[in-house]
């Protein structure tokens, strides 16, 4: 018997759009839970524990959820600019789905109750170290003298403490003069020169892309960056698969840095990876592996 599969995402999310296109090309027909359409024109009824009638709907269609056996979900806000009333509906829908999916017995990639530390950088880096990775030294603080001491110890990049997506850039000590603690804490991490690896783990499979860039700190801002599919050493693949599983995830995206001594540093693991760009460099294999997990994994 074929399992019912649903994809939860938003039409403004490139990864959701990409995965649905790959599903269509492969002949799969998941139910589509379009978050923006539900917020704008529909509604939801979600019971915990499930009462067999849990569902969402838009102006055009109703999507039953109780009989779904597997979900691929990207629970993130729409990139559309909503009025305040719609923002409230959106946050209500996202919270309700998180709670409902947490209590669901279906396969959920990824479950909302996975280890939640990516949104607090110091905690995230501590957990990555605990999982056995080499993690660059970091400091989170509002104390300008401690931040300056850290910068005197070597080059460093600045990141958002909350994990908000932003281009990574180097912070020079002179710029600290402009900093005020009223603007919130800073998170600095030691800069590791070298090439980047972006690896996606789906179940026990690993798909990696090597990125060789120019002088830019963040390859995403480097127009001359070169991307090539690579096979990681078997031991590293095993570590990534095990660390993904240990965090309660079936799917993850890993940002790694390899220095001049070929030492592998872990910068981040993403629990809801935006993978569509990298999928193009591995022949769509990430999407295919996700489909196998959703439709065929017992």
């Amino acid at each position: 018997m074929t399992r019912n599969v649903a994809v939860i995402g938003d039409a403004t999310d490139p990864t959701t759009v990409h995965f649905l296109a790959e599903c269509a090309a492969a002949g799969y027909k998941p139910r589509v839970v379009s978050l923006g359409d539900i917020v704008a024109t529909g509604g939801w009824h979600l019971a915990v524990p499930d009462d067999g009638c849990s569902r969402v709907w838009t102006a055009d269609a109703e999507v039953p959820l109780s009989d779904v056996g597997a979900f691929y979900c990207r629970l993130a806000g729409s990139r559309a600019q909503w009025p305040a009333e719609m923002e409230i509906r959106q946050s209500g829908l996202l919270l309700s789905l998180r709670l409902w999916l947490t209590a669901s017995r279906a396969l959920v990639i990824n479950r909302p109750d996975i280890d939640q530390h990516n949104g607090a950088k110091s905690l995230h880096e501590s957990e990555l170290a605990r999982l056995g990775f080499s993690v660059p030294d970091s400091i989170s603080s509002s104390d300008i003298s401690q931040l300056a001491d850290f910068l005197r110890g070597g080059r460093a990049v600045i990141k958002a403490c909350c994990g908000m997506r932003a281009n990574t850039r180097e912070l020079l000590i002179d710029r600290l003069r402009e900093y005020s603690a009223d603007r919130g804490p800073l998170h600095l991490q030691r800069l590791i020169p070298g090439y980047d690896i972006r690896a996606h783990v789906v179940g026990a499979e690993v798909f990696a892309v090597r990125i060789d860039g120019g002088p830019a700190v963040d390859y995403r801002t480097d127009r001359h960056a070169r991307y090539s599919a690579v096979t990681l050493p078997r031991e590293l693949q095993a570590v990534l698969v095990e660390a993904t599983r240990a965090q309660g995830m079936a799917f993850s995206g890993w940002d790694l840095k390899v220095d001049a001594d070929e030492r592998v540093w872990c910068l981040e693991s993403n629990p809801m990876p935006g993978y569509s760009f990298y999928d193009g460099h591995v022949g769509g294999d990430i999407s295919k592996a996700l489909m196998r997990q959703l439709w065929e994994q017992p």
Partner: peptide
Amino acid sequence: SEEVYAHVKGGLSLLGRTVVNRPRIR
């Protein structure tokens, strides 16, 4: 506000002293 929340969550999760209620990873 998000930065403060994340910084405090990280600190309180990792603090070696008693925190009531300590934020948890899961």
